[in-house]
Structures are given as structure tokens and as C-alpha cells.
Design a binder for these strands. Sequence first.
DNA 1: CTACGAGTTCAAGCCAACTTGAGGTCAAGA
DNA 2: TCTTGACCTCAAGTTGGCTTGAACTCGTAG
Lengths: 163, 163
Amino acid sequence: MKDPDIVEVARQSGVPASTLRFYEEKGLVASVGRRGLKRLFDPGIFERLALISLARASGFSLDEIRDMLAADGRPSFDRALLTAKAEELDQTIERLIAMREGLRHAAACPAPSLMECPTFRRMLRLAGAGALEQPPKQTFKAEQVIAPALPAAAPSAGSARRR
Amino acid sequence: MKDPDIVEVARQSGVPASTLRFYEEKGLVASVGRRGLKRLFDPGIFERLALISLARASGFSLDEIRDMLAADGRPSFDRALLTAKAEELDQTIERLIAMREGLRHAAACPAPSLMECPTFRRMLRLAGAGALEQPPKQTFKAEQVIAPALPAAAPSAGSARRR
DNA sequence: CTACGAGTTCAAGCCAACTTGAGGTCAAGA
DNA sequence: TCTTGACCTCAAGTTGGCTTGAACTCGTAG
């Protein structure tokens, strides 16, 4: 099988050519030559890209991935490192679950104002105490459709106070 | 002299003064005056900051938060929006759980090389097919909405997503 | 009155992971 | 041969959420 060129790799892997060049520059992948101007890659590139994608999805940074995927194609997966990352993910998951439950509760809470909901107020307190902050490391943000904004609820009561 | 100045707010809330200024510039909080050069805030600032922190932890962007926390202190929480965000978090959680399990398995897998582990190879295939990617943030533009549509896992094939 | 320290403004910098733009080069088709 | 169009390189831009630096302005202690 002939070595695929960058166009072919991009097409088959779904990874944009610009990203492939970027990855090469970063040392995550290596091209094996040129055909005209076009880079040629070893057919193993596809597996390597899948590995990179998998590692990214697991929260590894490109730098970490480069180190794991040493020069050669075969990953030098350090089990302790994998476990540590799993642990890290676990904490992120816990945090997100708490947030998800909070949101669900808030969406369903019968209290006239969220500020009067004890559950919500408990979360607020936690947030105020910094308990919900994500430990510095990767962030898995979520984003989605923005529903039409409501006109602010009747500005009846004054600002809530506390303390 | 009841209103706390920026130093006091930073101290009590743990939010750096630079962040408070940044938030004010972004319209997330408002100062109510000055004492000398120092900004003064309404005591309600603490609750507001907690609200911001909570929303951030739930995955809302500062812009979204600003819109929810309209001018006055009271959040105009749109239940549909909260539900949507919870749903979004739920998907992120699912994805992270899959990754965590994959990592744990990889760390414990008895196969001589990870590449020979069927479970690992299955994940690799998913990654190669783009099934593990972070869903792209979608704003209000409709149009290219048809894209991902990835059913559970049909290694059936074509690939050309993205862009 | 003067110096000082801590706040202020505005602009720029940072990080990650890419993307975009300007201008260059190459192989192949008319 | 010349043109075309795709890929190339290198630099700079993007996004989000802040932080940092330089230069400035106060109120207050001395």
C-alpha cells in the first residue's frame, strides 16, 4: 500500500490538513517524505491519529500525548499515569454530576424564587466557599443552544442580601 | 460605610481584585461607588459572586451568565435553559465515564501490549471514527446542524465530518 | 507639604489547540 | 511554455478567562 499523502490522511481521518501540519510541528506525528510538496505519511498514521484522539478525549494535553507516544508508534503507557488520569476524570465527573443534579433540581424546583430553594442555596454556599472550582487541569466545558432569553422577571423585590 | 470595598470583597470571596475589575468591565458585577480610588460594592456582591461561581461550575460562559443575571441581582433563570445545560452536562459526563473506564481498563489490562487488548482497540476505533470528540459549541446559527448524528457505534463508516 | 503605598486605567500578555492569511513552490494540463 | 490550483512555510490571529505591567492618582501618615 502506498503511503497516503496529507490530503488522503485528512480525508480518511477527518483531521484537517492544517491540524496534521500542526501535529507534525509539535512532534505528535511524523511524515515520511514528500511527493511534490505534499507530505506523505506512513499508513500507521491512522492508528496514531486515533490514539491521539482517544488520549485527547481522556483529557491528556498534546504535550503529554507526545511524551507517551514516544518516537515510535507504540505508546509507552505508564499504568500509574493512566490510573492518575482516571482518578482525575473521576473527580471531574463527580463535580459535573453535582452540577447536573443542581441544575435539574433548579429547573424543577417549586419554590417561587430559586433564592428561596434550600437546595439551591446550599449549592450557592458551596460555590461561595470555592468548593466547586475545578482544580487546575483540563476543562471539559459544555455549551449548547441558547434559548431565547426571558425578559427579566418582574423586578419586584429589592436585591437579596445576605450576611 | 457598610459597602465593602474591592479589597474586602477580594479577601472575603477569594476572587482576586483583578477578576473583580474584569467582571465589572464585562458587566457581570457593578460597583456602587468609590472611596478614594477604591471601588465599593453592594453587600449583595457576595451572593452574586457565588452565583457566578456556581454558574461557571455548571458550564455557563461569562456571557451567558451576564445575560441570566440581568442588571439587578436576581437571576432570571430560564428553566428550559437550565434543563438544556443539565442535558449537556449529562452527555459530557457519559463521555468522561467511558474514558475513565477505558483508562482503568487499560491500566489493568493483562494483554502484553495494549494494542492487543480488544477493549482498547474498540475504543481506538471509536476515537478514529470521531465518536469521542467534544461536541462543538453551537450558537444560534442553525444551518450546519446535520453533522454528527453518530449512533451508538456502527463501525460502518465513511468519514468526513468536521469543518 | 511631601512621600508612600495601594488602589486605578489601559494595553498587552498568557495558555491551548488550532485556524487563517500572505506569499512561495511545484507538477501537471492546455 | 505558461497557467493553474493545490500544497507549502511562517507569522499572526482566534477564543475565553483572566493576569501582568507601566504609568498614574488618591488619601493618609509623618
